[in-house]
Simulated assay, not measured.
Amino acid sequence: MMRNPEQEVEGRARESSTEGVNQHADQSIRKSISRYRLKGSDAISERIRELDQEWSIERTLQVNGATLALTGTLLGAFVNKRWLVVPGLVATFLLQHGMQGWCPPVTVMRALGIRWRREIEEERSSLKVIRGDFKEVTSSSTPAEVLQTIRKT
């Protein structure tokens, strides 16, 4: 089975993280599932809303990269041309992340507990299963029915 390019990048990115960091992220998801398994639907829904607001490494990298690039460009244009090295460095990191699924800021972000989008989605999907969102999906459901069920949750 072929993985899509996004899965490839996230797979390489997870491989570039230390085993301890990956285990910590996985343990966090398992703890959340255990904790909310015994709570009601309202508590699970609230946690899902929190997950919808959680910033992934990808989003954090994009926003911080754009902010630094814009700041460096403005400082280069109005203060000193040497500041133009900042957007060059940011572009290099973003290119490296796009090609390899990793760049130096990712190590810092992982250490700060920022998760990959896939890890956030794994917790969200697990909580939806516990809440019972997929009861109407069976092995005889059509692809359209499955997709409709996923989209309405």
Rank of each mutant, 00 (worst) to 15 (best):
Ser45Pro: 06
Leu38Phe: 03
Ile57Cys: 09
Ile57Ala: 12
Ala77Trp: 12
Thr142Lys: 08
Gly88Ser: 04
Glu122Gln: 15
Ile114Arg: 08
Leu112Asp: 13
Lys128Val: 05
Gly40Thr: 06
Val90Lys: 03
Glu54His: 05
Arg59Phe: 02
Gly132Ile: 01
Ile44Ser: 09
Arg49Trp: 00
Glu122Met: 15
Ser140Trp: 03
Arg117Leu: 04
Lys128Thr: 11
Ser125His: 08
Ser125Tyr: 05
Asp42Thr: 14
Gly113Lys: 06
Arg117Trp: 01
Gly20Thr: 07
Val108Ile: 14
Val137Glu: 05
Phe93Gly: 12
Ala66Leu: 14
Asp26Leu: 07
Ile29Pro: 07
Val137Lys: 05
Arg30His: 10
Lys135Arg: 13
Ile114Asn: 09
Arg12Ile: 00
Met99Val: 13
Arg110Lys: 15
Glu121Arg: 08
Asn80Met: 08
Trp83Ala: 11
Ser41Glu: 13
Gly72Ile: 09
Gln100Phe: 01
Val79Ala: 11
Lys39Tyr: 06
Met1Lys: 07
Glu54Thr: 12
Val129Ala: 11
Asp52Ser: 08
Lys135Trp: 00
Ser17Glu: 11
Met99Leu: 10
Tyr36Phe: 11
Arg151Tyr: 00
Ser56Met: 06
Asn64Leu: 11
Gly65Ser: 09
Met109Val: 03
Ala91Asn: 03
Ala77Arg: 15
Glu58Gly: 07
Val9Thr: 11
Ser16Pro: 02
Gln23Cys: 03
Ser141Arg: 13
Lys81Phe: 13
Ser140Lys: 07
Val63Asn: 12
Lys128Asp: 12
Arg131Trp: 02
Gly132Ser: 05
Met109Ser: 06
Ser34Arg: 15
Val79Ile: 12
Val129Ser: 13
Ser41Pro: 15
